[in-house]
Design a binder for these strands. Structure first.
Lengths: 232, 232
DNA sequence: GGCTTACGATACGAGACCGTCTCGTATTGA
DNA sequence: TCAATACGAGACGGTCTCGTATCGTAAGCC
């Protein structure tokens, strides 16, 4: 069920390949890559999930339909492999502070959001994947769940260290931290994402709050502040 | 272009109705309501945008296809009217403080998120509306733009009053405030939304920040702050 | 060379949907 | 009464897609 017992095995490669060495003409690796490339190109062109037909993919790849059906039993299986292939590994954690890890995580989201294929998948996933349970499951298992677990882990570390408020729900803490970047990467087309400093701004804004108050210096190089806590 | 010159006129009602009093049998209001109800029912059942065919709508409504085509020229026009009909008016602003307005705005989002039709539209909008420019435009003009403008207006009021940090981008401020609720209403199926106190928690968490620090009394009874604006 | 399999291309049947049109019937105004 | 329009139902031609099958050809193993 969970991704614990299925440790994200690569799972790549179309079905039926590891068996006995085939006898006749071997399958063309080039054709396979052309198929993947065609799907990704169509995604980046903004093709809707319903317009993404096998025939269109075959035409775009310069490949016969049979070459696709020889590898995947149907469109859903192909897309499952495409989704599984696309995700880059999560960023390594274990930075000096939990704040560094948070910034890394948000920056990972930012970089993913800059990739059109990635955005395409998220948006298609939201509206259309109800009809495609296997694809939805794979997407959730390989993309959604690992990301959420990563953020939760960092947040719990911050809470345990007494550096994040313990009076708030962990879910709410996570949402406060990644909400802004997810909005920009998923919901809004025109949102700017290029600034590499954006994740730091977002994380520090979430940590310090956006309400005006006697300015508190940003967290890292705490300089001596004359008046900080009027009450303990 | 903008919604300024088109002040959100009701725009309801299928085409061709305001002319001379028709001669023959008048159009059935019941059929019209049945069509709208059928679309909304299919939305709530999770039907994907691509499975939402005219024939299915007609069958669900117990109506002939011609009765639909007599009112709308195609599926897109029908859905435009459905979307336009669905939105409830934005909450009134002008609460005692900008914080009250923020909570009202977030609570509006929360209540919208509890309505399955509303979620369906948002999700479908994200992935599929590229192919349907008129529908996308209507949705943006009647839903997205007014909401964003409402939040921006509140935020600007807070900034002008010196109660929101002026060193952050207005867009970022908005995202910090409505990010968490939009995540729960749009992206995550299983997120709890029932708690009516949720908007207050979210707004106050955004204002005060989620970093642990010497507790600061909640915002409302703003203590007299000696130094506010160092720069205009 | 012969066997086997993959290749691109394309024909095929099945089925969903679109938008139009035609039934027979119902409901209005003139 | 009668013309006009709407109604539900569904046939119709057209388009699109799916998944299978069949070409002639290409590329490996024996």
């Amino acid at each position: 069920m969970t991704s614990a017992d299925t440790p994200l095995k690569p799972c790549h490669g179309p079905a039926g390949e590891q068996d006995a060495p085939r006898r006749g003409r071997p399958r063309s690796e080039a054709a396979e890559q052309a198929i993947y490339a065609a799907v990704e190109k169509l995604m980046e062109d903004g093709t809707g999930l319903s317009e993404l037909s096998i025939e269109r993919i075959a035409a775009e790849a310069g490949v016969g339909k049979a070459t696709i059906y020889r590898r995947w039993p149907n469109k859903e299986a192909l897309l499952v492999d495409v989704v599984a292939r696309l995700e880059e590994p999560l960023p390594p954690l274990g930075g000096p502070t939990y704040r560094d890890d948070l910034i890394s995580a948000v920056d990972y989201m930012r970089r993913r959001g800059l990739i059109k294929r990635s955005r395409w998948i998220v948006r298609s996933a939201l509206g259309q994947m109800n009809a495609w349970p296997e694809l939805k499951h794979t997407y959730h298992e390989r993309v959604v769940h690992p990301r959420r677990e990563m953020v939760r882990q960092i947040v719990r570390r911050g809470v345990a260290a007494g550096e994040l408020r313990a009076d708030l729900d962990v879910e709410l803490l996570c949402e406060m931290l990644i909400g802004p970047i997810l909005l920009r990467t998923v919901l809004w087309d025109d949102a700017p994402l290029e600034d590499p400093d954006l994740p730091r701004q977002m994380v520090d804004a979430a940590l310090q709050g956006i309400g005006a108050r006697p300015p508190v210096p940003p967290v890292p190089p705490v300089p001596p502040v004359p008046r900080v806590s009027s009450a303990s």
